[in-house]
Every structure is written in structure tokens, then in C-alpha cells.
Write a protein that binds this DNA or RNA. Sequence first.
DNA 1: GCCAACGTTGGC
DNA 2: GCCAACGTTGGC
Length: 153
Amino acid sequence: MKHHWLMKSEPSSFSVDDLLRRPRRTEPWDGVRNYQARNLIRDEMKPGDLAFFYHSGCDEPGIAGVMEVASPAYPDPTAFDPRHHHFDPDSSPDSPRWLLVDVRLVRKLRRIITLTELKAHPELSGLQLLKRGNRLSVMPVSAEHWEFILGLE
DNA sequence: GCCAACGTTGGC
DNA sequence: GCCAACGTTGGC
């Protein structure tokens, strides 16, 4: 069963244009440090799943691209590196606490589908992104919401 | 197990 | 910069 996702990143640290310029448009989606998001990556994400690239913490928050999950989940190496911003001393190669997947950019959207615009559609009222206080950096999107959002572009 | 303090996220 | 809404930590 193929799932759909929304994955957040602050474009000041990693944007859809950064992913566009990577070899094979592919990059490890590292730095997830939330157990709920980790569990989704570990238990639900599968290669071939599709995900929205969401820009957060910026002037124009919204969906900027479509990605494909390009690997199974595997340990996040940035958790092992003491010099890395996302270092976690409680994660080790023997017992990794944090996981990631590789993502590949399928396409950059012609325009950002903004958060403001998403909020304006009653069809999207159940979208987890729009629920109060939701700060998950990786969250599921239903097939219906996925198609509806793509139709907005 | 409870809960206050603290840190983070992220929109505005 | 502000603040709401979380999640985490640690004392008890």
C-alpha cells in the first residue's frame, strides 16, 4: 500500500532548490528528532511513496515540490557525529535511535501552494498540517487530500 | 507517576 | 520579536 506524506524543512537550511541541485536530485532527509515522526519513517514509509516538500519557518510557508521516498529507512548518521548540530549521544551505530530515508525530487511545483491557500479550502479541513498545534515534521496525507492539493497547482 | 520548568517549532 | 502549543527533562 502506497502512502503519501508531507515533510517539512526550513528553506534557509534546506530548500526544494537545494534538492534540485543534488546529484540524481536525491538526498538523505536527516535530522528528524521526534519519536512520532521517527516511528512513521520506521514503520510506514516505503520506497516509492510520494511526499510533499513543505517549506516552513519562512516568508511564504507552503508546499514547494513533490518527492519520492528513494530508500528504506536506515540509521541517521548525523546522530553519531559529535560535531553535528543534530548529534545525539544516546544514539549509536549499535543501537541507532534516529532513522531517515533518502528522498528524490520528482518535480518542483510551478508555484508554492501556500499554507494560507490550503487553509482556505474546506475540503482540506482534516489535513493534519492544518490541525491546531501540529508540529510534526513528517506527517501522513490521505490519497484524497493529495490529489486535491495537486489540483490546486 | 506527577508536574513544573524549559526548549523547540513555526506562524504571524 | 512574540507567543501558542507542544515535547522533554528531572525532581519529588
